[in-house]
Simulated assay, not measured.
Amino acid sequence: MKKTFKTFFILFLLSNSFGLVSQEQNKLAYDIDNPDERYVLPEYLEEVSALTFYQKDQLAMLNDEKGRMYVLDLNTKKIVHRVRFEGNGDFEGLERVGDYIYAIESNGKLYRFNVKMEGVVEKIKTPFDSGNNVEGLGYDAQTGHLLFALKEDGDIKDVSVKGKAIYGFHLETEKFKKTPIHIVKHKDLKRVLGDKYKFKPSGVAVHPLTREVYIIAAAGQSLLVCSPEGEPLHLSKLKSTIFPQPEGIAFAPNGDMFISSEVDGEGGVVLKFKAN
C-alpha cells in the first residue's frame, strides 16, 4: 500500500472522530487478493448481477436482464434450481429473508415471492426511481431492515443526500425509513480516493457475526466496510484481474464471503473468501 493512500486514510479516520489511529487496526478480515474457491457460471449468467445466501452450500443470484433467480450448488458447482418471477428488465439486487425472496430492479421496482412457490409474486412500492439506480439489496437481521444501496443519486422526495446512500425497509411494519440508514459522504471518499474518485455501489451485505456493512462498487473497483452504525472502517481496492466487474456480495452464516463478477463474453464468476 502506498504511503500517500495510508496518509489519506488516517486523515479520513481522524476527521470523522472514529477513535482510531491507523488503518492497521481495521484490517480486512479476508485475503481479498487470494480467493479460496472460484465458481465459473454458465454463459447465460454472464451478467450475474446479485448474490444472496440461499441455504446450506447454496447461493442464489440474478441475471441482469431477466426476472429469473438461479441457485448455485457450491458442492457440485452447478445451477440446480431456477425460478422465473418476472419478465425482462434490469434486475440488480436479490436477498433471501426467511421463506421469502426479495428482488429489485434499478428503477426501484421491488418484488417478493415465497421460496416454496406458494401464493403470488408481490410488488412493493418504493420511494426510488431510475435516477437513483438501485443496485444493491441486503438485510440487517438485527434491525429487521432490507438495505437498498443506490448507485447514483441518493435523493428521494423531501430528502437531499450529499453522498452515497443506503436506505432501509422495515419488513415487520413494511415501512421505508424516511432518511437513509447510512450515508457515505462525498467529502470523505475524496479524502481517501482523491478528487476524481469513482465509488458507485453495486452490492451491499451485512456480516452475520460482526454486523459490519460491506459495500461493493463495480465503478471504482472497491470494497468499503462500515461499522453497524455506518462509520467507514476500511476501504480496499479490488484488482480487475480478480474482479472483472464486481456486482454482488453475500455471506454464509459462518462468515465466509462471496463476491460475484460479470465477465464479458463468458459466464460470470463467484469467488469465495474464508474469514481470517
Rank of each mutant, 00 (worst) to 15 (best):
L14Q: 10
L14D: 13
L14G: 03
L14Y: 11
N16G: 12
S17L: 08
F18S: 15
F18W: 14
G19N: 13
L20S: 00
V21M: 14
S22Q: 00
Q23I: 05
Q23W: 01
Q23P: 05
E24V: 03
N26S: 09
N26H: 02
N26I: 14
D31L: 02
I32S: 10
I32C: 13
D33E: 05
N34F: 13
N34V: 10
P35R: 08
P35D: 13
D36E: 12
D36P: 07
D36K: 08
D36L: 09
E37P: 15
R38Y: 01
Y39S: 15
Y39V: 06
Y39P: 01
L41K: 12
P42G: 01
L45C: 07
V48S: 00
S49I: 01
S49H: 09
S49K: 04
T52Q: 00
Y54T: 15
Q55Y: 02
Q55H: 08
Q55D: 15
K56H: 07
K56W: 06
D57H: 10
L59R: 03
L59M: 04
A60K: 15
L62D: 03
N63L: 14
R68N: 15
R68H: 14
R68Q: 01
Y70L: 05
Y70S: 14
Y70V: 09
V71K: 06
V71P: 06
L72Q: 04
L72I: 12
D73N: 01
D73C: 01
D73G: 05
T76W: 00
T76C: 14
T76F: 00
K77N: 13
V80K: 03
V80T: 11
H81R: 14
R82D: 12
R82E: 09
R82N: 08
R84C: 12
R84T: 05
F85M: 11
F85G: 06
F85I: 07
E86T: 12
G87L: 10
G87R: 13
G89S: 13
D90I: 06
F91A: 15
F91E: 07
F91Q: 01
E95Q: 10
E95L: 02
R96G: 04
R96A: 01
R96S: 04
V97E: 02
V97N: 11
V97Y: 09
V97G: 13
G98L: 14
G98M: 04
G98S: 15
D99G: 14
D99K: 15
D99M: 03
D99E: 07
Y100R: 06
I101Y: 13
Y102Q: 15
Y102S: 08
S106G: 02
S106C: 04
S106E: 12
S106W: 02
S106D: 06
N107S: 02
N107R: 04
N107C: 00
N107M: 11
G108D: 06
G108M: 01
K109Q: 06
K109P: 03
R112I: 05
F113Y: 04
F113R: 13
N114L: 05
V115G: 14
K116C: 06
M117Q: 00
